[in-house]
């Protein structure tokens, strides 16, 4: 067991942020190497939840156990933040160094690594996000394109070499091409290193296709927890809480409701096509 959340609740005191709901009695476990999708409409508590997971927010009650250690009790938050890497929304807004190298090295340096280790980590991180080390290391992050800035920012967290990587809408605001590339890079990384990933996304078809498992939050409560197939069966419920299902799921479910023998746990267009053709050809 890598990560276990037990009876986690959090209340913001009334004076501070009003944009996010508190969390109420959340329980779940995540195995090493799982790819978890986290969905819920704005204000459902997703951001609060992921920030409690790396100790940025101290929950009011409950336990978060990572590697047999309860991080809500620990004093060494740096270690927690190394283990649980968090990529915020629009992470390129946090770039600050003069060179790409220095910016990515910020995390590893804070961990107190040697220069060689830092360099190695920067190299590795840039490789993951498909930016050439020699070409980019000395360039100013502020003079890169939007997509490249996003990649450098993600690399900055990857260089911490976390055991769990949390990505809060990593493709928000990007154009389709860059979005697909970055998603492919994340998938690639996960397949190579079997890193544990928690992905927050508003794109249901993306989550459905990528995640082994989906957690659904609504008003601070964990309301669904299961595989893509299990979660997206609940179309009506998801719509009630302001979420939807991927279009192909909708097509397949509607076909099934019309007394057709058809599988509904399919999340790629190619497979859906095959399934429909099979049905049509009897």
């Amino acid at each position: 067991m890598l990560l276990e959340v037990k009876n986690l609740s959090h209340n913001y005191d009334l004076e501070s942020s009003v944009t996010d709901y508190s969390l109420q009695d959340i329980n779940f476990m995540i195995e090493r190497g799982q790819f978890v999708g986290l969905i819920g409409h704005t204000g459902s508590g997703k951001s609060t939840l992921v920030q409690t997971l790396n100790g940025l927010i101290k929950p009011t009650t409950g336990q978060i156990i990572i590697d047999d250690q309860d991080i809500t009790k620990t004093k060494n938050l740096k270690e927690v933040r190394q283990k649980v890497g968090l990529v915020f929304q629009y992470p390129e807004h946090q770039l600050f160094e003069e060179t790409v190298f220095a910016d990515i090295a910020f995390g590893p340096k804070n961990l107190g690594l040697t220069e060689q280790e830092v360099e190695q980590r920067v190299k590795n991180a840039l490789e993951v996000v498909n930016l050439d080390y020699e070409t980019f290391k000395d360039r100013s992050p502020f003079k890169l394109s939007g997509g490249q800035q996003r990649r450098v920012a993600i690399a900055g967290v990857l260089a911490m070499e976390p055991e769990v990587l949390i990505l809060d809408e990593p493709t928000a605001g990007l154009d389709p091409k860059t979005r697909q590339e970055i998603i492919a890079e994340i998938v690639n990384l996960q397949q190579k290193t079997s890193l544990t990933i928690i992905l927050i996304s508003h794109r249901m078809e993306e989550v459905a296709r990528l995640a082994d498992r989906i957690l659904v939050l609504d008003e601070g409560k964990l309301v669904l927890d299961g595989t893509s197939a299990e979660v997206f069966q609940q179309q009506e419920f998801l719509q009630e809480i302001g979420l939807g299902v991927p279009q192909i799921t909708e097509v397949l479910m509607k076909l099934k409701n019309k007394d057709n023998m058809i599988a509904t746990d399919i999340f790629t267009i190619e497979e859906a096509k095959q399934e429909i053709l099979k049905l049509m050809r009897g």
Binding site: K177, Q247, I269, K273
Partner: peptide, 15 residues
């Protein structure tokens, strides 16, 4: 042109 195609449109097209 590196644009998205809605899932439904693509499915219909492939079919």
């Amino acid at each position: 042109y590196h644009l998205d195609v809605p899932q439904l449109t693509e499915l219909a097209f492939r079919l």
